[in-house]
Nucleic acid binder design. Structure first.
Lengths: 150, 150
DNA sequence: TATTGTTATACTCTATAACTATA
DNA sequence: TATAGTTATAGAGTATAACAATA
């Protein structure tokens, strides 16, 4: 074992400074991502959870159960989130002809256009990435893919 | 203007496929980051907000007001979060000799060791990055810095 | 019996507004 | 009067448990 500076916590030496900095940068990206997402949702007077569900449904209507799986939360929570979206006229519940237990949540016309507008106001897609050239984006894509084990 | 596939929404053409994929990859990183953070916090029976505050204080004790600034939330919320950490014996409130209005929140010994353990269980720092070579990490660092305008 | 969605309950986080004790 | 922290209140998200309708 190497001699440690007494100021250095016991767990610190296991991560080299470069890795630590990359982790901090990823943390900054995550923080910025969430911030921009909430701002975009707020512009439409939606909470983060509501915006996420609306975004999901704008791709494809689905049973309440599946929304919960996508959100990684309990199905009982989805009831309230969809209730609020439905009260605002952005989403509606339809019966599933194949199984009368199931309710399919689907966006209304207004819900669809809100979801589209939400996607557009997600500046995160353009602004930070605008700094990078095409080649750099390819490089970033490759590194992120490897990180995620894709 | 280029001819569009009728299946393509009106907002899609503004982002090229490469950028879109990078954005999706960043979204995946963000999701994974949050997941691992919550799992790590949960191992210590802490909520995300509590873990974040404890992590902050483990670096440096600070006034309630400043915690709110760091968390980007209202000061009134910090009262409750610190209350719960204090009830668990992980944090304590100390008077500020310089200004009797101020209360300094500081981790206890147990709080410090919990914070250390929390940091260690944040596998995100090591596992995904372990896939990348030193050179690749340097490259990733550069790209992230440019993205964030650092 | 098992599954889908809901309700009831309790806890945490959040913002707003009003309060207290200092400055 | 201005500031730091708190309290009170209300809304939203979360998990757990129990329930009705349907499979």
């Amino acid at each position: 074992m190497a001699t440690q500076n007494p100021d250095t916590p016991a767990d610190a030496p296991r991560i080299d400074p470069l890795t630590l900095e990359v982790v901090e940068l990823i943390g900054a990206v995550v923080a910025r991502y969430y911030e921009e997402y909430d701002v975009a949702a707020g512009k439409h007077a939606l909470t983060g959870a509501q915006a996420r569900v609306l975004g999901l449904l704008s791709l494809e209507p689905m049973p309440m159960r599946r929304i919960a799986q996508k959100l990684k939360c309990e199905p009982s929570n989805v009831t309230g989130i969809v209730d609020r979206l439905e009260a605002r006229g952005l989403v509606e519940r339809r019966p599933d002809p194949a199984d009368r237990r199931v309710k399919l949540a689907a966006p209304t016309e207004e819900g669809l256009s809100t979801a589209r507008s939400l996607r557009e106001s997600l500046d995160f897609a353009r602004e930070p990435l605008a700094e990078l050239s095409h080649t750099e984006r390819e490089s970033l894509r490759g590194l992120l893919r490897r990180m995620l084990g894709t």
